[in-house]
């Protein structure tokens, strides 16, 4: 039962994040790239204000999978790195915390691009 509740929470919060994104696309004419940027920066800000961690605790993947979660990860990484390494942490924290995701996107992107071919839409 517990896992079902966890999934329900993830569905709800994740879905709501996407609804906000869709409203931005439909009503503001913001390009998708701008929306992604907005999400990541908002994630950093919300995390810095201490508001995002409670959401992650409650909704799990519903808060970490949207790109705001990526921003949260950046902020959290910096916060911890600064506590540990001081000034150096300011620069290393963000990339260190998100290295897995970025490297995965680059490597899988490279592989897929090598192996596949774009196709006409029909």
């Amino acid at each position: 039962m517990e896992w079902l509740i966890a999934c329900g929470k993830a569905f709800l919060i994740g879905g709501l994040f996407c609804v906000v994104g869709q409203l931005l696309i439909d009503y503001t004419k913001l390009t998708p790239a701008r929306i992604l940027v907005t999400y990541v920066v908002s994630g950093v800000v919300l995390s810095a204000l201490g508001w995002y961690q409670p959401l992650v605790d409650w909704a799990g993947a519903g808060a970490t999978v949207p790109l705001t979660g990526f921003g949260h990860l950046l902020a959290k990484g910096v916060r911890e790195a600064v506590a540990e390494k001081g000034w150096l942490g300011v620069l290393t924290g963000g990339f260190t915390a998100t290295a897995g995701g970025i490297a995965a996107a680059i490597f899988f992107g490279f592989l897929v691009a090598l192996l596949f071919k774009p196709k006409d839409k029909s």
């Binding site: 999934c7 993830a10 879905g15 994040f17 993947a61 999978v65």
Partner: peptide, 10 residues
């Protein structure tokens, strides 16, 4: 969005 996050949760 909900489905993708649920897959993530699983």
């Amino acid at each position: 969005g909900g489905i993708i996050c649920t897959i993530g949760q699983l």
